[in-house]
Amino acid sequence: MSGFPVRRPRRLRQNETLRAMIRETEINVRDLIYPFFVIHGQGIKNPVPSMPGVYQLSIDNLVKEAAGVVAAGIPAVLLFGIPAVKDEVGSGAYDPRGIVQEAVRALKGAYPGLLVITDVCLCEYTSHGHCGLVDGGQVLNDPTLELIAKTALSHVEAGADIVAPSDMMDGRVGAIRRLLDTEGFTHTPILAYAAKFASTFYGPFREAAGSAPRFGDRRSYQMDPANSDEALREVELDLQEGADMIMVKPALPYLDIIRRVKDNFNAPLVAYQVSGEYAMLKAAAANGWLDEERTVLESLTAIKRAGADLIITYYALDVARWLK
């Protein structure tokens, strides 16, 4: 192949029309999933200080805010619940009248076509803040599986379209699949947080969800950020246990993981642009250091280019507006 001056790549970069015609990767509003934090009460819209533009919402305000999501054409939301009371076993997570269960009913009643995904975990509901049962300072794997599966079932019975276990207990996807199938919910998909790393980028989320652990950390069950091969093993196990979709979390610092997972499994892949990623972009934009719109779109394009099919982002509503 002849080089310069025969080959001039800049020929195809001369104007936006030409650049758009040959663009390899594009973000579409249908790629987006918008997360919500829902709390008990009425008329509540508590701002999350570390996440400008993000709120804890009571169910009535959740339904109001979801109207904008539907109008924007965003196909799905992801719900995180903040209970009124916490206990050692996280009973609010699998209470049929729990906060997420009631939120699901309200959303599906108001917007039947909106896809409602629920986060399945115990950390927001336990008094100790860990994602499983605790004994002697140790997070117990196997006894936790029953409660995780019960939580998923209660969400589906309330009307959830997809359940997304985020606890990172070994075997939880299989436990959920078996219980859902036994109860007749064979068609409900599982979106597994398959490669969820023990990341410092979750800090603002823990403020929003009130889910910071009261002792220790989550490194005994979430993945070591240094590991890549292990992520592939985790994904393979979740798919074998019945996961229909898989997630890599966080997103931008783990583009290599997204790419490897997509190349190795080619399963529907969701990436989570987490709270820390959002907070950094917001802070830089507020200080005038970055152009917010262009930087966000570049970041999301990189995530999709790496192999993500769908992206969970707190910027979803902004992106929908920008894309118009």
Rank of each mutant, 00 (worst) to 15 (best):
S2W: 10
P5I: 12
R7D: 09
R8W: 01
P9N: 14
P9A: 13
N15G: 13
T25L: 02
V29Y: 10
V29F: 11
P35D: 09
V38C: 08
N46G: 00
V48N: 09
V54A: 10
Y55P: 02
L62M: 05
A67Q: 15
G68P: 06
L78A: 09
A84P: 01
K86A: 09
G90F: 01
A93Q: 05
R97G: 11
Q101F: 13
A110N: 11
L115A: 14
V116P: 02
T118D: 07
D119Y: 12
V120Y: 10
E124R: 14
C131L: 12
V139Q: 12
T144L: 07
T144P: 01
E146H: 12
S154L: 00
V156K: 09
A160L: 03
V163H: 01
M168F: 10
M169T: 01
D170A: 13
D170S: 12
D170Q: 11
V173A: 06
V173P: 03
A175Q: 02
R177D: 03
H187D: 15
T188P: 00
I190C: 06
G203Y: 07
G203I: 06
F205D: 10
F205R: 11
A209D: 02
A209R: 02
S211E: 04
A212R: 13
F215I: 01
G216W: 04
M223S: 07
D224R: 13
A226F: 02
S228I: 15
A231G: 13
A231L: 05
L232H: 05
V235N: 08
D238Y: 01
E241R: 07
G242M: 04
A251I: 02
A251M: 00
D263H: 11
D263V: 06
Y278H: 14
M280F: 07
L297K: 15
L310C: 02
I311R: 00
Y314H: 14
A320R: 03
R321Y: 01
